[in-house]
Amino acid sequence: MNHSNLQAPLSVSGLTVAYQKKPVLRNVSFEVPEGKLIGIVGPNGAGKSTMIKAILGLLPRVSGEVEIYGKRYQDMRKSVGYVPQRESVDWDFPTNALDVVMMGRYGHLGWFKRPGTKERDMAMDCLAKVGMKEFAHRQISQLSGGQQQRVFLARALAQHADLYFMDEPFVGVDAMTERAIITLLNELKAQGKTVLVVHHDLATVREYFDWVMLLNVELVAYGPTEDVFTKSLLHQTYGGRLAVFDQEDGAVLVESR
């Protein structure tokens, strides 16, 4: 899909989300450049997942505007892909990996129409991209955590979106899956797609992401990784809960809970 280069893939302004009375996300504004991998980092309860869900309209927002390529999200759904947290579904559901991936095509299919050969082939392609082709007909409860995560990723690929949101895709996966995911992210980037990833492991932020967003209810810092992922800004984000050990010019980070 071709979008005007003038419009940012995602622009958020004044986003506030509250559970009951307490805001869990306060007045967050930012604009996402095209073709970048962006890590969203912050302590537990910082509102990382909440922000993604509020942008996608899965949670009600108190205030704030969201624009996708300069248009309302409702009109741009087909350009947006979403990988929810793996634990958000019951994996004992009676279906197989291929079927889950085909769900990525449901939005394009529209009402009543059933997925056919075309959707099946697309889903197979996406499974192959995450190295899961041979598991296509495996019941989803028989997959390991990493394999389940890759199925979710393949489902998002099947959406053929330009802007992706991924909610903690690296949590609880094996090293092989982590590699597979990061390879895929770089492939998406090479195709000019934009990916926002909620991320937990501070040690890999520098390696994985072009841009970083530091979030703790409010937006602490946002920009290219080398500018933002600094000791002082991280201290500001995590408060006293973070121990940073200097090591030559870089820093080894240990999150203490």
Partner: peptide, 22 residues
Amino acid sequence: SLLFKEFKLLSFDPGFARGLGF
């Protein structure tokens, strides 16, 4: 049978269904 696909998605992953615009 008409809404099988929609009911399936709703039962498996309602959040994703909402994201797709259903």
